[in-house]
Amino acid sequence: MELAYRIVAAVLALFYAYAGGKKVAQSREQLQPMMGWVDRVPMPLVRTIGTLELLGALGLILPPLTGIAPWLAVAAATGLALIQVGGIALHLSRGEARLIGLNIALLATAAATVWLGTVWR
């Protein structure tokens, strides 16, 4: 189970490091083609979401790797799942139900990571 956790957590961490890094570093105009929702969300909130995604990515990898506070990995995966719940709610509120496929996949992956994180200990 530990190997399964490491693989799923690594894939999830790579995705969130990329997406979070873009939200933190790029302007609204640069994000707009990939993330249409940034037009109605204040940039400080977009930056906060990006920062939380980056911290979540680190939280998935560092605690199990170092052996320090491994429960933080489960907390990070839970936080990333909650970010996707918010993303689904945002898309639905904008009438973009067709766009929630990625959010659902990321939510399911984060939930699987929570489950694997509780099993491998």
Rank of each mutant, 00 (worst) to 15 (best):
L60E: 04
Y18K: 12
A9S: 14
A110I: 00
A9I: 03
A77Y: 03
Q26N: 14
V8S: 08
G79C: 02
G117F: 00
V41Q: 05
A57E: 06
N103P: 05
A9R: 10
M1N: 06
L116K: 07
A81G: 11
A10S: 15
L106C: 08
A77F: 00
A97C: 00
G20P: 04
V24A: 15
R40V: 12
A69Y: 06
R28S: 04
M1S: 08
L116N: 07
G50P: 00
Q32A: 10
A4R: 08
L107P: 04
A76G: 07
L62D: 04
A81Y: 09
L102G: 11
T51M: 11
H91K: 11
I104Y: 12
R47F: 02
I83S: 12
G36W: 01
A89F: 02
W120Q: 14
W115G: 02
R98Y: 01
L106M: 13
R47I: 01
M1P: 04
L54H: 10
R28Y: 00
L80P: 01
T109R: 13
G50M: 03
I61C: 09
T78M: 05
A25W: 12
W120I: 00
F15R: 02
L82V: 14
M43L: 13
L12R: 10
Y5C: 00
G50C: 05
A9L: 11
A13Q: 10
L12W: 09
G87T: 01
G101R: 12
L80G: 05
W71P: 05
R47A: 09
M43F: 04
P44N: 14
L92V: 11
L82C: 12
M43K: 07
T109W: 15
A4Y: 06
A111L: 15
T66A: 09
V38L: 09
A73G: 11
L31C: 07
I49D: 13
W71F: 14
T51D: 09
L92K: 09
W37P: 01
V114L: 02
E96D: 12
G56Q: 02
L90Q: 13
A76R: 10
L45I: 05
E53W: 15
L82N: 06
T78E: 01
T109F: 10
L62K: 01
V74D: 08
V38W: 09
P33Y: 04
M43G: 04
L82D: 03
A111M: 15
F15N: 09
A77E: 07
L14H: 10
T118N: 13
P63Q: 09
G20C: 10
